[in-house]
Deep mutational scan, measured.
Amino acid sequence: HERALMVNRLQKLTRMLRVHPDPKWKQEQQELIKRLK
């Protein structure tokens, strides 16, 4: 369940980064990718 939330968050971040590349979001995205591996 928590994994699904993280995947959701990651997808949302990816969409937001396409619109507005924010370093903070980029960092969070990298963190999520690490944790999901």
Rank of each mutant, 00 (worst) to 15 (best):
K37Q: 15
N8P: 02
E2A: 11
Q30H: 07
K26N: 03
K34A: 12
K34T: 11
L17C: 02
L32W: 02
L17V: 03
K24L: 09
M6E: 04
E28G: 01
R9P: 03
R9H: 04
L10I: 07
K34S: 08
L32R: 01
L36T: 01
D22S: 08
R15D: 13
M6V: 08
W25A: 06
H20N: 13
Q29E: 06
K26Y: 11
R3F: 14
K37L: 13
Q11F: 08
D22W: 09
T14I: 10
R35Y: 09
M6Q: 06
H1L: 11
R15G: 05
P21E: 09
K12T: 10
R18G: 06
V7P: 04
K37M: 14
I33H: 02
V19D: 13
P21K: 08
H1Q: 12
T14L: 08
N8M: 12
Q29P: 00
E31S: 07
K24W: 05
Q29W: 12
K37R: 13
Q29G: 02
V19M: 10
H20I: 09
L36C: 00
L17A: 02
A4H: 14
Q11L: 14
P23T: 04
L5V: 11
Q30A: 09
A4Y: 11
H20F: 13
Q11C: 15
R9A: 04
K24A: 10
R9Y: 09
K12W: 15
R18L: 10
K34N: 07
L17M: 04
M6F: 01
L17N: 02
R15Q: 14
H20S: 10
H1F: 14
A4L: 13
P21V: 07
N8H: 12
W25R: 05
Q30W: 09
K26G: 03
L32E: 00
K34D: 05
P21F: 15
R18P: 00
I33S: 03
Q27E: 12
Q27Y: 07
T14R: 08
H1P: 10
R3Q: 07
R3H: 11
A4K: 14
H1T: 12
K12G: 03
R15W: 06
P21D: 13
R3E: 07
Q27F: 11
W25I: 13
E31V: 04
Q29L: 15
R18W: 03
I33P: 00
E31M: 11
Q30T: 09
Q30I: 10
Q29N: 01
K24F: 06
E31F: 06
R9C: 12
L36Q: 00
D22H: 09
L13G: 00
P21C: 06
L13W: 00
L5T: 10
R35N: 06
L5C: 15
P23Y: 03
L32P: 01
V19A: 10
L5K: 15
I33Q: 03
P23Q: 05
A4S: 07
P23G: 04
P23H: 03
M6G: 03
R9D: 04
Q27M: 11
P23I: 04
Q11V: 13
P23E: 06
V19H: 11
L13S: 00
H20A: 07
R35E: 05
K37I: 10
T14K: 10
V19S: 10
L32G: 01
M16F: 02
L36F: 03
I33D: 01
V7D: 03
K24C: 06
I33A: 03
Q29M: 14
E31Y: 07
E28A: 04
L36V: 02
R3L: 15
Q30E: 12
K12H: 12
V7Y: 13
M16R: 03
H1I: 12
Q30V: 08
K37T: 11
L10S: 00
H1A: 14
D22R: 08
R18E: 09
L10M: 02
K37G: 11
